[in-house]
Every structure is written in structure tokens, then in C-alpha cells.
Nucleic acid binder design. Structure first.
Lengths: 231, 231
DNA sequence: CGCGCTTGTTTTTTCGAAATTTTTTTAGTT
DNA sequence: AACTAAAAAAATTTCGAAAAAACAAGCGCG
């Protein structure tokens, strides 16, 4: 069941990436080779390659010849990330709405449907579900994937993932979530109708999520505000 | 003369990066380990780590277990890059003009002066000079570095470098350049005066450079248009 | 003649031991 | 006790040989 052209290093990179984004490897945690070798069952050099990749993605930071550390978190970083996301997301959405064709619209409806179905099946707890997070990501990607700009899409995905780490962190420390199912629906409708307001809706969606995360989990990563600014 | 905390891998990464940006390693070129081992005088694993970093920066692309290739170039990629740059550059400039203080203004004047002095010393050929390119980059950075957004600055620099590769490519294939010295001066003045028009000026500056590159060197990389879109 | 298979060659990828560097511990001096 | 310096321990970084995979050439067969 191994995808063609997949190398051990790229596999470790993916797994490690997942572990960081899902906070199984905690922000600020020191990454010691001996431990990682056990955990992922590969050699030094292979690990090192994976870490180099992650470091270029700013999910881990490399400290000279003093090893690697999981990228720290801070309110300032989350806010910075949020502003950058708003800028990019608005632009790729705007372009998508301009260029999008029938297939694009169909894909949006399809991925919304998948997300929505799982959401009703899971009830109030959907917010903590891994699979839902995947479908949620796919839905948002489908909205903007017609923008014809690989460069912007790449950066957008990058920021999306980093922000997702914060969302998941916060989800570990709360038990309920007031469902805003309608929000996604209204965003989709506005996008499909090419309403200019769609840009405002997506911006509000992003900012509200951030505010929510800070409200619930902000105190958890207030301490290392300073550390994150070196990234 | 080795900077503290610099590892062999990061050194190779930097050198290789320079070689790619300066087109000493040509776009699309296959990167064979045996050859690189000679060129940079390091071992397999160390090379591999540098390549992994570069690949995450999309300066090289990795082809499954078929090795690495210098990222190809294309008109489409350059145009995509240019649009993304305009978006980011306008934003960081806007923010810088809002937050910038006295020190920021002083730094701008200083780096403009350095660039301008070298420019007059070099005459019409300044455009081909490595050192001028560095000072030019520093000047543009100084304009925007007060924006208080590490995330945006990071992405901006990334795009700036990638676009610079195109500029340098084109400079290899022309002998003269109509100097537009006044342009930088007028941008600087507008920025320091907090004129909203500065955003338009910077946008035009970026787009004109791109048009110029395409006009002079576009035909050189028209062939691999398709290849670049996989990046 | 084209197509698939086997074999030999080249290139990439992985491994773990050895070298280097940082961190911790210990001992000595003021 | 506080502060340095030296030695030991621990961790990271590098290396090149060995394993694995891709590629190329030759061979047999329908």
C-alpha cells in the first residue's frame, strides 16, 4: 500500500508533520535523535533530512548545532498567521470566483456535502474529529483551487496547516463547541453566486476561528511569546 | 571565519542556493550526487539534507526516488510569482508605512545611499553586479521591514529571491539597461512621506521589471512552461 | 518487428559507526 | 560560597560503505 516514488525520508517527514500538527509532538519540545530513531524507526541521516524539510516549513526550528525543536507557539504568531491568511485567502477566493468553471462549482458542492454529512453523523463533537478536519480542509481548498496560481495556493496551504495546529491545540482543552454549520453553507452559497460579499464572509470566518482559539486556549501559550518571533 | 552555529549542511545549502539563484546551476538541470559531492566537497547525507531544504523552498524539485532537479523556469511561473509579489509587497509596505518609526526611516535613507553610491560608481553596468543586487535587495527590505509581520516578511523574501533568479537570467542575455535611477528615489520619497501612491509605485516597479525580463529573455524559457506547473 | 523479461550498470537512498560539538559534572582556586 | 577551568558525558553532525531502486542493454518469443 506504498505510493510509488515514496521514499523513507518523505514518509517520516509526513508522519512527523502530522504529529506536529496534531500536537502529539508539543510546541517547544526538544527533538532528540535517539528518541526519534525509536519512534519512527529510521537512521540518523534519514531523520535529519525530514527535520531539514520541516525546518524549511517552519514547523520545527533548528538551533545551530544544538539540534531541533518543535516550533513554539504564541498569541502573536497566531495573530500574524491570521492576518496573512486573510490576505491570501481573500485573494485566491477572488481569483477563483473570477476563473471558476462548472467543474469547480461541482467540486465545491461535493466536498461540502461530504463534510456536512460527516458533521451530522458526528453531532456536536465533529470539531475534534480527525477525519472531519481533513474534509473541512478539502472544502476550503475546493473553494479556492480555481485561482490559477500555484504560488499563492502553496503559501495558502502552508498557512492553513500552521493555523490548524492552533485550532487543534485549543480543541484539546474544551469539551463543547457551538456549531456554526450555517456559516460554511452561507460562504459556499455566496461563492457560487459570485457575490463580492463572499470575501468578507471568509475573512470573518477566519478571524472568528482565531478569536475563539485565543479565548479558549490563549493562556496556554502566552509564556513563549518571545520565542516564536525568532522563527 | 566560520559563523557560530553554522553546520556543514547549512553551508552547502547556502552555497547551492546562491548557485541556483545566480543560474550557475541551470534551471531543469539534473543534480547528480557524484558531481555535487565533488563540487561542494561533502558526503551524500549532507548533500541530501541541503537538497531537502532547497526542495521545501521550491528551488529544486524532487522526483520520487529519481533524484533532484533544479526548479524549471517558465513565463507562467514568473507571472504567477509577480502577481503574488505585488499582493505581498503592497501589504507589507502599507503596514510599514503605518508602523514605521524614525529608525526605520533612517535605515531606508542609509540603504538607499549605499545602493545609489555603488550605482554611480558602476555606471550603466550596475544591473549585472552581484554586490549591487545585494544592496538593491537590502534597500527593498528596508522599505518593508517595519511591518511587524514575520510571516509576511518571510514569504516576501522567498518570492523576492525566486523572482531575482529570473532577473539574473535575463541579465546574462543583454548588454545594456536603461537606467531608471529616479524610480527608486521616487519610491523612497513617497514611502517616507507616507503617500498612499507609494503602493502604486512599488507595484509598477515590480511589474515593469517582470515585463522587461520577459521581453528580453522570455523566449529562453518558453519551452518548459508545462514542467513548472507541477512545482 | 514489437513486446515483455532478464541481466548488468548507474544512481539514489539508507544505515550505523566515527568525528565534532555542546552540555554537564567535577575539581580547584580565590 | 562563587567563579573558572578541566574532564567526562551526552547529543548532534558527518562520513562512506552497503542496500535498494531506477535505468539501459541484450535476449527470446509470439
Amino acid at each position: 500500500m506504498k505510493t510509488k516514488g515514496e521514499t523513507r525520508a518523505s514518509d517520516v517527514h509526513t508522519r512527523m508533520r502530522d504529529d506536529i500538527l496534531s500536537c502529539e509532538l508539543k510546541p517547544g519540545e526538544k527533538l532528540r535523535f535517539e528518541g526519534l530513531k525509536d519512534r519512527y524507526d529510521v537512521s540518523f541521516s534519514t531523520l535529519r533530512e525530514a527535520l531539514a524539510r520541516l525546518s524549511a516549513e517552519s514547523l520545527v526550528v533548528s538551533e545551530g548545532q544544538r539540534g531541533f525543536v518543535v516550533a513554539p507557539v504564541s498569541v502573536a504568531d497566531l495573530e500574524d498567521l491570521t492576518n496573512a491568511r486573510v490576505l491570501l485567502e481573500r485573494e485566491v477566493l477572488r481569483l477563483s470566483m473570477e476563473y471558476g468553471d462548472d467543474k469547480w462549482e461541482a467540486d465545491i458542492l461535493a466536498s461540502y456535502h461530504r463534510m456536512d454529512r460527516l458533521q451530522s453523523r458526528l453531532g456536536a463533537h465533529y470539531y475534534f474529529d480527525e477525519e472531519w478536519a481533513r474534509l473541512h480542509g478539502a472544502f476550503h481548498r475546493s473553494l479556492v483551487c480555481a485561482c490559477k496560481s500555484p504560488v499563492l495556493l502553496d503559501m495558502r496551504l502552508h498557512l492553513f496547516d500552521r493555523a490548524n495546529r492552533y485550532r487543534r491545540m485549543s480543541s484539546q482543552f474544551r469539551t463543547k463547541w457551538r456549531p456554526k454549520d450555517v456559516e460554511h453553507k452561507s460562504i459556499m452559497d455566496a461563492v457560487l453566486d459570485r457575490e463580492p460579499d463572499a470575501l468578507k464572509l471568509i475573512e470573518r470566518h477566519i478571524r472568528e476561528t482565531t478569536e475563539n482559539v485565543i479565548e479558549f486556549a490563549g493562556h496556554l501559550f502566552l509564556q513563549d511569546e518571545a520565542a516564536a518571533s525568532v522563527a
